[in-house]
Design a protein around this nucleic acid. Structure first.
Length: 200
DNA sequence: AAGGCGATTGCCT
DNA sequence: GGCAATCGCCTTT
């Protein structure tokens, strides 16, 4: 499968967030490949009080100000990692948070990465939702930590390819989750009726 | 130098 | 539905 070109990530952040729904994120762990279909994203703009970049560049968020198409991973609540795709040209300070994916391949490895019990192996439907139905759950299932922050998605460890074609009418726009500012902005996008969406 | 809090999760009631 | 866990970063003294 072919990686999405850099130009995809250089469009407006809202457009990137919406168009990533249905795309496939691929993680190579040694000889294993983990695949997930992106089903939920959130856009964070530079002029957005809810964005880490709102008050300018800091040691934590400097990756957000790099070139579009790189990974920005941050650590929060003393225990969780969240993964974002940097958007726009270098210096802009915008990104798209990956909030949820539907597991497509590497299910057993995801179970191990999440430290879940054997009862989840080969789990189907509702029982497996908990694998990747939230930003920190996705990051943990895919083995993504701050060590990967700054990686380029046009390289071979973590990248994104075309997935399924999703009609615009199948994508919902809603307020973002877990923020205290700019709550009214409908910059969360998700695949309607999908079981792995965090609020499903 | 210190205090508050977070783009969350999982457990408990 | 409510709340503890847990710590690095950012803001304020």
């Amino acid at each position: 499968m072919k990686k999405l070109p850099r130009s995809i990530y250089l469009r407006t952040t809202i457009e990137v967030a919406r168009s990533l729904i249905g795309k496939m994120i691929v993680r190579r762990q040694g000889t294993e490949f983990l695949l997930g279909m992106i089903v939920e994203t959130e856009a964070y703009r530079a002029d957005d009080p809810a964005s880490h970049s709102f008050r300018g560049m800091t040691e934590r968020n400097k990756v957000m100000f790099g070139n579009g198409g790189c990974l920005y991973v941050y650590f929060t609540y003393g225990m969780h990692y969240c993964a974002n795709i940097v958007t726009g040209a270098a210096g802009k300070g915008e990104a798209v948070l990956i909030r949820a994916v539907e597991p497509v391949a590497g299910f057993d490895r995801m179970v191990k990465n999440r430290n879940l019990g054997n009862e989840f192996l080969n789990a189907k439907g509702k029982r497996s939702r908990i694998l990747t139905n939230g930003p920190a759950k996705f990051a943990q299932a895919f083995g993504i930590t701050t060590k990967h922050s700054g990686m380029d998605l046009l390289e071979d460890d973590i990248f994104i390819t075309n997935g399924i074609v999703v009609p615009r009418s199948s994508i919902a726009a809603a307020p973002r989750i877990g923020i205290s500012r700019a709550k009214e902005k409908k910059w969360r996008f998700y695949l309607k009726h999908n079981l792995w969406v965090s609020t499903a």
